[in-house]
Design a protein around this nucleic acid. Sequence first.
DNA 1: TTAATTGGTTAACATTAATTTAACCCTGTC
DNA 2: GACAGGGTTAAATTAATGTTAACCAATTAA
Lengths: 226, 226
Amino acid sequence: MEIARKILVVDDESDILDFITYNLKKEGYLVATAFNGAQAIEVSKTFKPDLILLDVMMPVMDGIETCAHIKSLPEFAKTFIVFLTARSEEYSEIAGFQAGADDYIAKPIKPKVLITRLNAILRRKDKEETASTKLVVGDITIDRDSFLVYRGSDKIQLARKEFELLFLLASKPGKVFTRDFILEKVWGDEVLVVDRTIDVHIRKIREKLGDDYIGTVKGVGYKFEI
Amino acid sequence: MEIARKILVVDDESDILDFITYNLKKEGYLVATAFNGAQAIEVSKTFKPDLILLDVMMPVMDGIETCAHIKSLPEFAKTFIVFLTARSEEYSEIAGFQAGADDYIAKPIKPKVLITRLNAILRRKDKEETASTKLVVGDITIDRDSFLVYRGSDKIQLARKEFELLFLLASKPGKVFTRDFILEKVWGDEVLVVDRTIDVHIRKIREKLGDDYIGTVKGVGYKFEI
DNA sequence: TTAATTGGTTAACATTAATTTAACCCTGTC
DNA sequence: GACAGGGTTAAATTAATGTTAACCAATTAA
């Protein structure tokens, strides 16, 4: 069974809060609410939401401030923040992004759109599984945001499959991933490719990164060398 | 010292007009009133309000028409319009946003709520005005006010979609934006355009700015190169 | 008003890069 | 020396994007 997702909704208007809460609960989400930024931070500490839905416009501490604050706390690195913005506030798009928001939804809120969007956003979050979008292992840094890999300060460009494959291996350094597992994660269930395909991709990664990062365990699979 | 903010209140019921005016004046706002849309437009021309509080439901020319009309006049581009709506009107049904409204307040009006919200809205407006609407990334400056882009000191004109697209990418330089995300943000939910449309716009931007600013990540999306 | 211009979209085609395959190579093991 | 299990390479294939031109709608100029 799937674990219910936790969403914290923050708005100073109780009408909107109720309206959103109602719709989210109906959809099966666990919902907590807060009336302002300070409260939001407080509640987050115990509720540990997967996602925070944050109204940009709030008295006292507005959404952007709140977002910047929350994102500065390491414990919330994995928490997605989505803004609710009035349609005309383009300004908040930039300011919001710069404050570290992950997405935004424009008011007025239509229930269907809200739900669809949140589902999509959470699915994306799942997929990225990222936590922080940066994964650091030894002198290798893998950045999902920019789709770049760094060896020390050298920037290295990988193709998509190479990137996903490296990302998978690096997500658990030292662990051996079987070919089957790799196929399933990087290629998906339906895709059927020949075994040698993985080898070729591994080779290309080695070519670009150097030979010392990915190890072969004969008869089992590949691993990221610690 | 701060300059007093000017608010124009528009409602066909003089009771409500008086009530709101009283509360706003007490708070230190400069207030003008109008009984209908036509009058509102007339008064706005000389009074130049920072914000217009507009009842949705009015005889003759209703709030939505009025709003659309006012927003179509360039001199009022920076004027905020806030609707007064009856509680029963679902958020989803508020057509006001399509007409360009910036926010809304639900009736019945509680003085405290009214003041708090208006303060918040005006505070945001302040921020938008002072916070330069300029986004600077490397030698590119993007100015939302004038809809202009500068490369160094060269002025470059982009068409609307090109501008929005560049603006989105530049709001998180380095981050890769997927095509889906771009479509959603620049074109909106309902609009359905073909994939190649994005490419064409990207091409036009590159044509005008140069090839080095927007990068392609095959299979993923586009990014603004840092 | 019509004509001209601009912006946005699409379709068709070209180009490029990513991905996969196939063929062959190497190394160790039994 | 013949598997088994990968490694390597280049060629073939496919997918993704780039490019151009044409079309239409909206706007502006004449």
